[in-house]
Simulated scan of single mutants.
Amino acid sequence: MARPRGFDVDEVLSAVMELFWRQGYEATSVQDLCAATGLGKGSLYAAFGSKQELYGQALRHYVKLTTHDLQAQLLRSVPLRQAVRDLLLDRIEQSLSAPERPGCLLVSAVVERVPHDQGAARIARDAIEALKGAFATALHTARAAGEISTDADVDSLAGYLTAMVQALRVMSISVPDEKQLTAIVDTALSVIPE
């Protein structure tokens, strides 16, 4: 009979996620992971596998949390433009309020890991599609309610808004100016047809 784990998996994944987010994959050592989680190397490997496998699980954990948050923001009972604006401004606020966690873990994964890590590439691709799907659902709902034009190209708009989320995360690193970033959001909203 297997012994029950003496730790909460979600807590460990959250600690690992934060560490990879702050330091990146390459700069994070197994010793760093042990210190962040309070687990020994053997326990860490037994529970999660290799460093690469642990990174994949932490990235999935991040995607699950952020996707759930994003969907909840888009499904609120407010007009579409307000929901999208609030969501984009929230992403800016998150980025600017935590400079020790630059940008977005997903964006970091795309830049650092995707070129040579098929697992990270698959997670990133699925996350981007889920984000695009959430925007498409919100846009279809808004179109059916008469908030946007019936001839609006929902797929293109969903792709554009998905790109805006990622672009704002990157921009918040290089241009940490809330006023400029807010102006970008307001310009981006102008592409949603009346």
Results as ranks from 00 to 15, higher is better:
Glu53Trp: 10
Tyr55Lys: 01
Tyr55Glu: 01
Ala58Trp: 01
Arg60Glu: 11
His61Val: 03
His61Pro: 09
His61Asn: 08
His61Phe: 13
Tyr62Pro: 03
Lys64Cys: 11
Thr66Glu: 01
Thr66Leu: 09
Thr66Asn: 04
Thr67Gly: 09
His68Gly: 07
Asp69Pro: 02
Asp69Leu: 04
Gln71Gly: 07
Ala72Gly: 08
Ala72His: 05
Ala72Asn: 10
Ala72Lys: 11
Leu74Phe: 06
Leu75Val: 09
Arg76Met: 10
Arg76Pro: 09
Ser77Ala: 12
Ser77Asp: 15
Ser77Arg: 15
Ser77Thr: 11
Ser77Phe: 05
Val78Leu: 15
Val78Cys: 10
Val78Pro: 01
Leu80Thr: 03
Arg81Ser: 06
Gln82Lys: 13
Ala83Glu: 13
Ala83Asn: 15
Val84Ile: 12
Val84His: 05
Val84Tyr: 02
Val84Asp: 03
Arg85Glu: 06
Arg85Tyr: 01
Arg85Cys: 14
Arg85Ser: 11
Asp86Asn: 14
Asp86Thr: 07
Asp86Glu: 15
Leu87Met: 12
Leu87Cys: 12
Leu87Gln: 04
Leu88Phe: 05
Leu88Ser: 09
Leu89Lys: 13
Asp90Lys: 14
Arg91Leu: 05
Ile92Phe: 07
Glu93Ala: 15
Glu93Ile: 06
Gln94Cys: 13
Ser95Pro: 12
Ser95Arg: 03
Ser97Thr: 06
Ser97Gln: 15
Ala98Gln: 11
Ala98Asn: 14
Glu100Gly: 13
Glu100Asn: 13
Glu100Val: 02
Arg101Glu: 12
Arg101Cys: 10
Pro102Arg: 08
Pro102Thr: 05
Pro102His: 11
Gly103Glu: 10
Leu105Ser: 00
Ser108Asp: 09
Ser108Val: 00
Ser108Glu: 13
Ala109Tyr: 01
Ala109Ile: 08
Ala109Lys: 00
Val111Glu: 12
